[in-house]
């Protein structure tokens, strides 16, 4: 008899497509969180594959801190044009202007935490009942306990101690009015799987992921790109380095790594040899031991 085996990437893809289709079937208005980062690009690609030749039924939702790398926004807009999806942008600045979010102050101020507020406001104003995210269980210890279908109460809160058991491929997306779900089709992927899949599927990425020269400063162990949002203080000396980014988020807390990896093959080789997790470059996770769990309880991605 023929050997009916799938490779690990084929199995992960099949699982993610199954979850995306369940999301379309079980919810009335699901949206796909799109940051222009590699995980959300993979998600959009999988959504394309899941519903071909129909268009993906998910609008793309970008929660924008305003502290972007210009390359990300440029990529986002081109991408949206190409796939023809609706783009919904939630601006953190709007939340600040309305007084629902208050800007942090001090040298390490970041709008990263405020994204949760804007995200919940966007979910409410757009009547979204599910938000698809590219979160993976390998990223962080609190995420290791996350479900594929993760329930959020009417306040957008996650209750990690009271999660619904999830068995086989049977997902329970039932909820009461005002509640919503976060759905994570890439739960079982690792950073390496994402890179290998990007390569296998020949998916285009923002240039920030590949090595380039940039002015940076070192702050709390992270290499931050100097920009309008990251201004060196008296003790910090900017220098030019060949760097790339392993994750792309808010420019004030997304650290670069020194790297000469200029294409996907070189990035894969670098990830394979790396001894630090990709979130190791994220200042937002370093604030405390349970920083991620605390933010997630409040409605973070």
């Amino acid at each position: 008899m023929k050997n009916y085996n799938l490779t690990h990437l084929e199995q992960l893809e099949a699982e993610a497509i199954f979850v995306l289709r369940e999301t379309a079937a079980q919810f009335e208005r699901p949206g796909l969180l799109f940051s222009g980062g590699k995980d959300s690009i993979v998600m959009a690609h999988l959504a394309y594959k899941a519903f071909f030749p129909a268009k993906s039924p998910f609008p793309l939702v970008h929660v924008d801190t305003g502290h972007n790398f210009p390359e990300t926004i440029e990529f986002r807009d081109q991408f949206v044009d190409k796939v023809g999806s609706q783009l919904i942008v939630g601006l953190v600045q709007d939340s600040i202007d309305q007084g629902t979010a208050v800007e942090e102050t001090g040298p390490n101020a970041s709008r990263n935490a405020l994204q949760s507020i804007t995200l919940l406001e966007t979910i409410e104003s757009q009547s979204l009942d599910a938000a698809l995210g590219g979160g993976r269980r390998d990223e962080e210890k609190a995420r290791a306990k996350e479900r594929f279908f993760s329930h959020r109460d009417a306040f957008g809160q996650w209750d990690p101690k009271n999660q619904r058991p999830e068995l086989w491929n049977l997902f329970n997306g039932r909820k009461s009015q005002g509640e919503h779900f976060r759905v994570f089709p890439l739960s079982n992927w690792t950073e390496m799987d994402v890179w290998q899949y990007l390569k296998k599927e020949k998916i285009e990425l923002p240039s920030l992921y590949f090595s380039h020269e940039r002015e940076i400063i070192e702050r709390n162990g992270s290499l931050l790109a100097v920009s309008d949002f990251v201004i060196p203080n008296d003790k910090e000396t900017p220098r030019r380095e060949i760097v790339r980014f392993r994750t792309i988020g808010d420019a004030t807390c997304t650290g670069a790594v020194l790297s000469t990896a200029a294409n996907l093959d070189e990035v894969i080789a670098e990830v394979a040899a790396s001894r630090v997790t990709e979130r190791g470059t994220r200042a937002d996770d370093r604030r405390s031991e349970s920083a991620m769990e605390d933010r997630k309880k409040q409605g973070y991605f």
Binding site: N5, T7, H8, L9, M192, Q196, K200
Partner: peptide, 8 residues
Amino acid sequence: KNYLNMDL
């Protein structure tokens, strides 16, 4: 290229 033959 190994990853194209890995299983799970």
